[in-house]
C-alpha cells in the first residue's frame, strides 16, 4: 500500500450517535469536504452537521403530482369529449365533477412514484459496488455502529494527519478502507 490511490479513505468508528454528529461537525469545520457519515438509523442533526443542501426531491414530487393530475384529467377528457362524445340527456360532455376522483388518484400515483423512484435514483441506487463495503466492520453500520469516512479524494487528505485527526475525535477505531 504505497500509493494513496489504492485506498478509499480512513474510516472512524463510533459507538454513539451523538459522537458521530459531533465528529461530523468538527470534520467539516476542520476543512474536509469529501467525507460521509454512516448510521444504522436516521440521526437527527446529522444533516446540519454534514452541511449539505436540502434535497430537491419535494419539487420533483410536486411535478410528478402535477403531471399525474393533468394526465389523469386528460385521460378522461380525451375519450369523453374528443374521441367518443356521448350525449346523455344533454349533459355537458366535459362533466368535470365526475372526473375528479380519477384525477385525484392519478395525482397521488404520479407524486408517489416520483417520491419513491426519485429517492432511489438521487441516492445513486441501485449500486452494485461501493468501496466502503470492503471494510469488514462496516456490516455493523446497518446494526449498531456509526462510521465516518474521510475519503482520499479530499484535497486536505493526508495519511498521518487525517488518521490523527480521526483519533482525536474520539473514534473507538480508525481503519483504512481499500478502494
Amino acid at each position: 500500500m504505497d500509493s494513496s490511490s489504492a485506498i478509499h479513505g480512513y474510516v472512524a468508528e463510533f459507538e454513539k450517535a451523538e459522537q458521530l454528529v459531533a465528529a461530523t461537525r468538527r470534520t467539516r469545520l476542520a476543512g474536509y469536504r469529501v467525507f460521509d457519515a454512516y448510521s444504522p438509523f436516521p440521526v437527527h442533526g446529522l444533516d446540519e452537521a454534514m452541511g449539505h443542501p436540502r434535497t430537491i426531491l419535494p419539487w420533483l414530487v410536486f411535478l410528478g403530482g402535477l403531471a399525474g393530475g393533468v394526465g389523469g384529467y386528460l385521460l378522461q377528457y380525451y375519450p369523453h369529449v374528443i374521441d367518443y362524445p356521448l350525449n346523455v340527456g344533454g349533459r355537458p360532455l366535459n362533466s368535470w365533477p365526475s372526473f375528479i376522483p380519477v384525477t385525484f388518484e392519478m395525482t397521488i400515483l404520479g407524486a408517489a412514484l416520483v417520491a419513491v423512484f426519485g429517492m432511489i435514483i438521487l441516492n445513486g441506487l441501485p449500486q452494485h459496488y461501493h468501496p466502503i463495503f470492503n471494510l469488514e466492520r462496516f456490516e455493523r453500520a446497518s446494526q449498531d455502529r456509526f462510521f465516518l469516512c474521510i475519503e482520499t479524494k479530499d484535497p486536505k487528505f493526508n495519511k498521518t494527519e487525517t488518521r490523527e485527526f480521526l483519533l482525536e475525535l474520539g473514534a473507538s477505531e480508525v481503519s483504512e478502507c481499500e478502494e
Binding site: T24, D36, A37, Y38, S39, P40, F41, P42, V43, L46, D47, M50, H52, R54, T55, L57, P58, V61, A111, A112, A115, V116, G118, M119, I120, L122, N123, L125, P126, Q127, H128, Y129, H130, I132, F133, F138, A141, S142
Partner: peptide
Amino acid sequence: LGWRGSARHWHRHQVASLLL
C-alpha cells in the same frame, strides 16, 4: 439495492417517507 446508510441516503429517505 446497495443501501449503505450514508447521511445523504437517510436525508432523502426521510423526505421521501414523509412525503409518502
